[in-house]
Design a protein around this nucleic acid. Structure first.
Lengths: 238, 238
DNA sequence: TCAAACAACTTGTATTTACAAGTATATATT
DNA sequence: AATATATACTTGTAAATACAAGTTGTTTGA
């Protein structure tokens, strides 16, 4: 009956305000309506409103000041070095394009994988893909992804050209990244990657090995990312 | 009169549980007492207990499962790549020592500083220090710090040998890191730093430029960190 | 024996109420 | 006019209460 089947009210208010902030309804430093105003606007009580605001503050969309109000903070905090939405937001607003180097296909897991795997993951097989990401036509990231084939029907036949891997996982499979861990090194890139990134002789790259947890139990995403930081540097908030 | 002058009750419970977790009272995966048990144990109501638990979950100390309970999660999420407590927790439990290369002293701000500065910062002058950090006797980090001299009396005369810069700021000046931003590159280190880090010829290092926000209005901490990732890699959770 | 239903736990959501504490403005006082 | 003071806002903390929803073990029934 109710169109809101089991979506909490504080969550709905969170989404509404988040949408408004992302759509530039407010500008940097603007004050949100006060908690009491939000209460009457959306017909809920202060604890509910406060939970929504706490989440927004936690995600870096607003900053709260006792006695004053809640203020817009333009740049939401990112998770990890690169944003959860993939590498997209890490390089700002610049034009970012993706070239598939190796289309998603099933392989056996590599022998000495960068992270230990569970039994379930080993049994499920591994979806592997490699993508080159270009910023303003300069190759900047070489991204090697590994995903266990757990509840991902028809995954290898999807088109990955435009939208990011994360967007597809989120929209078609309701998979969301919850957190993860990563190792970072400055190393020399392998020859093949070195050519794709058009590296100078002896030029080092930034190498990330990441394991990402999802909301799906037992499903993790792995990626090995090589970054050419010669022209663009990786930027992140925390 | 009350020894708890203005420290909220949920915060106290947070500190108690955090201390217990850090002191290994529980082991990985253990269940915390239920919310109702915590209520009667510490004489507070569920909303108060829940606020403490929410903060713990947010900091990565526990994971909550509806219908089951709150479970210990050994590794708290870090802020940024390296932990807020400095580089200490980024390399795990290994023996980490600090050598002061350049003692804290007042300098004019560098001309082309890595981040834009406010007028107040420029007027206040800059405390500068350089430290070499060794993991198991291997030099791994070369850390150059810059702090505006805002409300930091007798700062340059303190001893920085043992405790970290962050510990001193926290304990003596009530300065806490709230967030920040950083740029990361893989580059060749300058000669001097290359020698301190005992780098091989042409070996690249990871270079971080960080700006950290604090709870003090207008006070930011800046650091430029060079990491030798040849032997140890930087590990982080998010 | 097996399976469904129930009961007893857990955390999640939400309301209502109250007061404390920080901030800014208007007002009265000197 | 300058300075206190009151006031009306804001967010912060905390209680008491109620029910929803997920999990687990037990009891009941076939």
């Amino acid at each position: 009956m109710s169109p809101s089947r089991s979506v909490p009210r504080y969550r709905k208010l969170y989404e509404i305000l988040r949408r408004q902030i992302l759509d530039n309804i407010y500008s940097e430093g603007d004050m949100l309506p006060s908690e009491n105003e939000l209460c009457s606007l959306y017909g809920m009580t202060r604890p509910t409103v406060r939970q929504a605001l706490a989440n927004l503050a936690n995600d870096g969309f607003i900053k709260k000041k006792q006695g004053k109000g809640s203020f817009i903070h333009r740049f939401p905090r990112e998770i990890g070095i690169l944003s959860v939405s993939g590498t997209t937001s890490a390089v700002g607003d610049r034009n970012l394009r993706t070239r598939i180097i190796v289309k998603p296909h099933l392989i056996p897991w590599p022998d000495d994988f960068m992270f230990p795997l569970t039994g379930l993951e080993k049994e499920s097989g591994c979806i592997h893909m490699e993508r080159l990401r270009l910023v303003e036509k300069d190759p900047v990231f070489y991204d090697i992804s590994y995903i266990a084939r757990i509840n991902l029907p028809r995954f290898t036949s999807r088109k990955f050209e435009d939208r990011s891997l994360f967007a597809i996982l989120r929209n078609h499979y309701n998979v969301e990244i919850k957190g993860g861990e990563q190792r970072i090194r400055a190393i020399k890139a392998p020859g093949k990657i070195s050519r794709y990134l058009r590296l100078a002789k002896d030029q080092a790259v930034l190498h990330l090995e990441r394991k990402m947890e999802t909301n799906v139990d037992g499903l993790f995403l792995y990626s090995s990312i090589y970054c050419n930081t010669g022209k663009y540097s990786i930027f992140g908030r925390f």
